[in-house]
Amino acid sequence: MKKAILLESVSKKYEVGSSSLEVIKDLTFDVNENEFVCIVGPSGCGKTTLLRIVSGLEPPSSGRVLVFDTPPDPRRQKFGVIFQEDSLLPWRTVLGNVKFGLELQGYKETEHEKIARTYIELVGLQGFENYYPHQISGGMKKRVAIARALAINPDLILMDEPFADLDAQTRSLMQRELLNVWSKLNKTVLFITHNVEEAVFLAQRVFVLTKRPSKVKQIINIDLPYPRARLSPPFISYRERILTAFHEELEGI
């Protein structure tokens, strides 16, 4: 099967004055095309750094990173990155925000509007095209960010704790809708979270990272059909398994 992401012995060190901080050490994993993978790990374990490396924003200090067989480069590849923080342009409307990626990716200007409207509809925001970000809720802002990422037809979707700031109900709704979109569009998703239940609900495979310097502690295949019932015994047993691995790492902090 074709590999969407391949990391081989990746390390990342930051030089802070005279000392150096090793965030990631000897990290190796791969993600298949069209796969949904969640990465869980204790906070401060370099999850965000990992995402920056995979999206080509930062090079690793050592090791090899390949995204569809080439070193990641957002100027030549199409990445849909969804951040934890609000990343909408406050001076643009919902429609203008969804167009943003299309403008940068060199789509024909005559197509922007039509494509943007299609994806606004896909995330259920039709009717809100002309609203500014400050006029809509946190959950709606996330939908706009997702529509903006999907509109460029990305090869890879990278999500950095995108639903962490949402209330519980909105979060579970967004999770279900994300799975809907994923099953419709057939995309590779790398989803970072510290919420174990979220990982079991979403992912085909869950990678548990160790505390800093991070590497993969355990890979768990979630062999449950979608949609998953959060209260079913197998769901709970997966959750417990991951929580156990997760808590072993938390204790050391």
Binding site: S55, R75, V81, F83, D86, G101, Q105, L158
Partner: peptide
């Protein structure tokens, strides 16, 4: 900074 990084992930120079 988030907005700048966001634009970079879309390939902005």
């Amino acid at each position: 900074i988030t907005l700048i990084q966001m634009a970079r992930t879309f390939g902005a120079d």
